[in-house]
Simulated scan of single mutants.
Amino acid sequence: MRLFLVDDDPLVLESLSIILGHDPYFQVLGVANNGEEALASLEKLTVDIVLLDIQMPGMGGITACEKIKETWPQIKVVMLTTFHDYQNIHLSLKAGASGYLLKSDDTPKQKETLKAVFGGLSIISTQALKGFQEETKEALLTHREQELMILVANGFSNKEMAEKLSISEGTVRNSLSVILEKLMLRDRTQLAIYYWQRKTGQEP
């Protein structure tokens, strides 16, 4: 499998080149630091998969992915990034990416994904998909429900929340039940933990 790597971090490029280069299944034909360099290099190479970072100086990964697919539709693109939010996943897939990996994914997972994409599948990293699903769940919450979640996470009682938001305690209780159902959580303790894990970027 002929690969081309694109990332603005030299250490990432070096690490990937060494790890993938030691596997006889993969052949790293070249590297680039941004989208412009990648497009120029791809003019001279025959590549199967481009492993592409999202945020880079100059032309970023999303735009580069679009241009690669427009010019060489046979080349498959796999995004390799630290971002697992809804917008980046959505834009990457819309741009034509066949895979979405996180840099935190272990090497066997990265290799497995590249092989699957090479075989014609579209793959999103489990970690990225989990982050996407969590963000999608939160998008189901109304503004008032998000307010209540924040108050619960900060230790407010039902009575205190009712007074602060000028609603009845019954409305608070009903709204909390809806929030727990939407987020698939058991109780307000889990809700508070969930909120702070998301707030600090930890895995829920």
Rank of each mutant, 00 (worst) to 15 (best):
W72I: 06
E147V: 02
V6H: 00
P73L: 07
Q197S: 13
N34T: 10
E66N: 10
I19P: 00
S157F: 04
A95Y: 08
E70N: 13
G21T: 04
L51H: 00
M161I: 12
Q87G: 00
T142I: 07
Y194K: 06
T142M: 05
L80P: 04
V50A: 04
A153W: 05
P57L: 06
R173I: 07
T63C: 01
L45F: 00
S157G: 01
S175M: 11
E169L: 00
V47E: 02
L51E: 00
Q133W: 10
T200L: 14
D187N: 15
A162S: 11
S168F: 05
S157M: 09
L29R: 07
S122W: 10
I179Q: 06
K111P: 07
K182D: 04
R188A: 09
L102I: 07
I89A: 02
G120N: 13
Q146E: 14
I18F: 09
P10A: 01
F156I: 02
A139S: 15
L91Y: 09
D23R: 02
K76I: 02
Q202E: 13
T107L: 13
K164L: 08
E169F: 01
D187F: 06
Y195F: 15
T171L: 05
S15C: 12
L121V: 01
T113A: 10
F118V: 01
M1P: 04
G155L: 08
I167T: 11
A153L: 04
M184I: 06
V47L: 02
S177H: 11
A153V: 03
Q197F: 11
I68Q: 04
P204D: 04
L11M: 13
V6I: 11
D105C: 07
G201W: 06
I150N: 09
F83L: 13
P10Y: 06
W72A: 02
S175G: 09
G61E: 00
Y25R: 14
S125D: 06
K76S: 09
V178A: 15
A32I: 08
I193Y: 04
L114D: 03
F26H: 03
G61L: 02
F26C: 04
M56T: 12
E70H: 11
N88C: 05
E138T: 12
A64S: 14
N154Y: 12
K67C: 06
A38L: 09
E36N: 13
A95S: 12
K164Q: 10
V178I: 12
S92V: 09
I19S: 11
I19W: 05
Q127I: 14
R144A: 12
V28K: 00
F83M: 14
I167A: 10
S125C: 05
S104M: 10
P73D: 08
G35F: 08
A128P: 03
A116R: 12
K164T: 08
E37W: 08
P73Y: 08
T71F: 03
L80I: 07
M149F: 04
T46M: 00
G96H: 11
E112D: 14
K164N: 09
M184F: 08
T189K: 15
D9E: 15
R198E: 05
L39C: 01
V50Y: 01
G99P: 00
D85E: 14
Y194M: 03
R2G: 12
G170A: 06
E36T: 13
Y86T: 15
I167Y: 10
V152G: 04
H90K: 15
I124T: 10
L51F: 00
L148H: 02
G131N: 11
L91H: 14
P108V: 02
G35E: 03
K111D: 05
E135I: 10
